[in-house]
Design a binder for these strands. Structure first.
Lengths: 368, 368
DNA sequence: CTGAAAGCGCTTACAG
DNA sequence: CTGAAAGCGCTTACAG
């Protein structure tokens, strides 16, 4: 049984056992070990159990690269986050939304024994296609997205989160119901007495700002009120958002509420309102289309629509694995978001206080 | 020249050329292609240039797994973020700090033609060691960190970000000068008139809260003032932080400033102060030990110490690649953070206004 | 300076 | 049900 092995020099580093060593220890062939461990072919149940026990006792796990080389599968997938917005690391990547999404994708893939390769923004578009992965998730592609195009051309199975503006009918995507969320937000604001609602709209060639805009337009249309929109580049500096907010404060006739289209605008919007002496929610209501750290941490906390990135992550992985294994498309997966009403749109101070107290109580009870 | 190749069936998917095809097209052997492309061995300069041209024209890139299998290197590294703090995705991973760090590591590795595998929190500690990577970066290990122990036992080259509490002398780590930052923060607060400064301290078995605490203790000692500390679990719910803050507001004698040890505490602290009618900075100064979205987006924005995760990422990758290639340890890399003074500790309103206006002006000028 | 050959650790037809 | 053999695409001693 492999006498040669005995003369092999012991490597310095904790020698990872190979399939040959497991086979020798179990008294079977490497082929049988492979079959037993992968559930392929026909293996006697007793043999399989025995092999599994031996493999476990040796701490064996297949070399992923050898497996990938032979099988053509890498058991790894790439995640491409949006190109950095703005400069100096203070762009979109500072949003916790992406962290929750990336973390969710990593966890979901890991549960399927797959790995997540995090691809940094804007490396060479061509190089992206040569990364050894079985598929890729592209987050919020833009119009004319070069990386996405490179992946498509290379024939790599790809799923997008948020629709691809260039292929709006691509069934391999996960979207949110941000349009519905926007409408719900507007209805909620109207319910709180704000009939004239202004919108600070990110000017990005992505699908989600368009969803926000058309929902807003339709809503205004339905109510017969004139849209009041300030457009700001998604990567804009704070002062631009600040200026846009001041413009809305000065609007005639006065607006009752501001809907903030991008979460990264929130601090600058609140800053501008504070500078102008506008009290929220007393003088003006404020809500955000996308929930996140900024919205939750604002003073007062902002009512916002939670896209639930964890669910999007799960849906994207599911879709991607299906596509990689050659399944037929079943259409886009729509992840339903959730509206979180907070103090920024709640006029009655009493209500805010009591909901706060209630949640504090809940917390106390749960932690005991 | 490989007549057999001509009879090979054409694969459906965009056929990635292999080294054999490049060799055939260039009229040389695969060995020479390998040498030419990897800068190994001796190859005639003309031959090398020719091979490079042919490879580029064919869109060739080496199959990473075949290379890894043969060379024993995977050209990939794992990043292990801290275990999720708290439940339901609202833990530490919602902090942009980790996103900036992860993104920075990915970019830096990519620049070295290496890949980043993002390992989700708390998968099986044993399984972590069998991921096909050349090394790992463990972020903020805890005392008795199981994943780190598993990686060490498996002999995988590892670098930690923040010291490993179990191996404080391990030279393979990147740390910040958070102790100095804490002192600088305290000195700044004292300079603004706050001589009695309370601390909300995260109670985590990690190195950085200890750095904050000992810097704080020393500072109090030096000034002969009694420490006022509220300890809160790093994963604590908002109501616990809220309660701790209220306790500090009620402290006798009254404190002049609150130093917030963990950035994730910021919203709850500010919330509590607002609830108690405490105005910042008028009645009380507030600063955060770690900068981030919460600190920047608070109302008013909080003075904080920026750990500069991008620089930490770069340092960690450098250290890791050195360790993987067998270099001798050169000691921990200390990344200097930067103190950002903001409105939360600036009493003179005029100063705040003017600095705001100045930055807005700067922004305007730059964007033209 | 160049190349033929071996082999990394697996999985996969193919025999038996 | 089990195994011997081929081969995935590369790199690495080794010859020349």
């Amino acid at each position: 049984m492999g006498g040669r092995d005995a003369t092999k020099p012991v490597t310095a580093r904790a020698a990872k056992p190979t399939i040959v060593q497991v086979a020798a220890a179990a008294g079977v062939s490497p082929t049988t070990v492979s079959h037993a461990l992968n559930g392929k072919g026909r293996v006697d149940e007793g043999t399989r159990a025995h092999v599994e026990r031996v493999a476990a006792s040796l701490g064996y796990s297949a070399n992923r690269y050898a497996r990938g080389l032979r099988s053509g599968r890498f058991a790894a997938h790439a995640l491409l986050l949006p190109v950095a917005l703005g400069r100096g690391g203070s762009g979109a990547l500072t949003l916790d939304y992406y962290m929750r999404l990336a973390s969710g994708v990593a966890a979901e893939l890991f549960a399927h024994r797959q790995l997540l390769v995090l691809v940094p923004p804007v490396p060479d578009a061509g190089a992206v296609a040569s990364i050894p992965v079985d598929g890729a998730i592209v987050v919020e592609p833009t119009e004319g997205d070069e990386q996405l195009a490179a992946l498509r051309e290379a024939g790599l199975p790809t799923v997008t989160t948020d629709r691809d503006p260039d292929h709006p009918d691509d069934p391999w995507c996960v979207t949110s119901d941000l349009g519905r969320g926007t409408t719900a937000l507007l209805d909620h604001l109207a319910g709180e007495g704000a009939t004239r609602v202004a919108l600070v709209l990110p000017d990005a060639r992505r699908e989600w700002p368009r969803a926000v805009e058309s929902a807003y337009d339709e809503w205004c249309d339905r109510r017969g009120s004139a849209p009041v929109v300030e457009r700001v580049a998604l990567a804009a500096r704070a002062h631009a958002v600040h200026a846009a907010t001041c413009a809305l404060v000065d609007a005639k006739p006065a607006v009752h509420a501001i809907l903030v289209g991008a979460e990264r605008f929130v601090p600058a919007v609140m800053d501008a309102l504070a500078d102008r002496g506008v009290r929220v929610p007393h003088d003006l209501l404020v809500a955000a289309c996308v929930d996140g750290n900024h919205a939750r941490g604002a003073a007062p906390p902002l009512t916002a629509f939670d896209l639930r990135p964890e669910l999007q992550a799960r849906a994207a992985v599911e879709l991607l694995l299906a596509r990689v294994s050659g399944a037929a498309p079943t259409g886009p997966t729509v992840v339903r978001g959730a509206l979180h009403v907070r103090a920024s749109t709640t006029r009655s101070h009493a209500r805010v206080r009591s909901s706060r107290a209630a949640s504090a109580e809940r917390g106390t009870r749960q932690s005991h």
